[in-house]
């Protein structure tokens, strides 16, 4: 019987720690978004704001237009497929204040549907088109949701976990 291999120490886990800017921001968020139903959390060094999909445009508009938050730059829109639900992440950054935040919302996998934020940042346009392409998230009110990265008539949503990337053959 072989000796069971000695388990190495588990990888050190990164501690969630906000810097001063992050602490100020989460305090400011609590006061400036009182009327919207949000939950403030921390992931590593970022402030995470979770909210329902119906509040997204309100939150984003507030985040951009409030002079104390001033999130003028949308870093990216990314979708993560957790199989039971899809999580949409809006990564925001403020060029003037140099603080950052993630706005998260969960959508159902069957009918992922959320209002577009192109009216807040024009730069959201292609990020949302890409998310629609790869994950099938429908952004209500988006000016133009044609396929961006995939060709027209592509079947399925290749970004999702259920898409069989290894068995998939094009020709």
């Amino acid at each position: 019987m072989t000796q069971p291999r000695k388990r190495e120490a588990a990888a050190p886990e990164a501690q969630a720690a906000l810097d001063d800017k992050g602490l100020n921001l989460s305090a400011a968020l609590a006061t400036h978004m009182q009327d919207i139903d949000i939950k403030i959390d921390v992931a590593l060094d970022e402030v995470v704001l979770s909210t329902g999909s119906e509040n997204i445009v309100a939150v984003c508009r507030r985040a951009k237009e409030d002079p104390e938050l001033a999130f003028d730059y949308l870093r990216s829109v990314s979708v993560v497929d957790y199989i039971e639900y899809l999580e949409v992440n809006y990564h925001l950054f403020s060029l003037s204040k140099r603080h950052k935040m993630v706005v998260k919302t969960n959508l159902s996998s069957d009918q992922p549907c959320v209002a577009t934020v192109t009216s807040v940042w024009r730069g959201a346009n292609w990020f949302e088109r890409e998310a629609h392409d790869l994950f099938g998230v429908v952004f209500n009110g988006h000016p133009d949701l044609r396929p961006l990265l995939l060709y027209e008539g592509f079947e399925g949503y290749p970004g999702r976990k259920e898409f069989p990337s290894h068995e998939y053959t094009e020709w």
């Binding site: 990888a11 990164a14 590593l44 990314s78 992440n89 990564h91």
Partner: peptide
Amino acid sequence: LRRITRPPKGESYVRTESPRGDFAVFVV
């Protein structure tokens, strides 16, 4: 490091300045 990289559960978003601008990676 351990031979196999196995990060803990979580997500990180890192921005870097590539020659073209803000090159960022979001890892879950």
